[in-house]
Design a binder for these strands. Sequence first.
DNA 1: TCAACCTGGTAGG
DNA 2: CCTACCAGGTTGA
Length: 182
Amino acid sequence: MRAESQTKSPAIWVLPVPTPDGEFAAHYSNCGLCALDFPARKPPASGVKASGPPPGPDLHAWHQATVAAVAAVLQGRSPAQLPPLDLSRGTDFQRSVWKSLQAIPPGRTRSYGEIAGQLGRPKAVRAVGGACGANPIPVLIPCHRVLAANQRLGGFSGGLPWKQKLLSREGTPLPPPAAPRP
DNA sequence: TCAACCTGGTAGG
DNA sequence: CCTACCAGGTTGA
């Protein structure tokens, strides 16, 4: 046995994550959850998309944890447990940002500048925004809890409506109809 | 090398 | 309150 072609074929399994807000799609590598997609209007992956080598030890256990974790966040609560996260495809900077995001509890928010300063790069505010946008596992890695200065919403790759919905679920006071206006 | 980014702060109306 | 503009770190082509 030898590594046949693991260079370009990560072998990803995609499983559906049913929730009251739609069906998310969880992508797993042999190292854990590597991506989470928001509900699509027409999810092509309503099943398993296996291809190549065998999955991790317990793909089922991982997925069970994912489903429970996503459900918890959608209810504005902190997940009791997370599946192993495979963030290997991110840069060091991005991983450090994502790690900081995981430290933000539900109902609390930070600004891009706060995250940047926390990482020792107070000027890298824009880079932090970029890292948030590159977050492969939204919801579980709460990039939605990062607001712009002035408590404005800022942006969101997954769509601002989702950012608002997630924040309101955890009781975060959204900027009044006077300040916002992206 | 260059442009794009989920920003931030300042200046002016 | 709102637009305009510049400074700025990191990333991917």
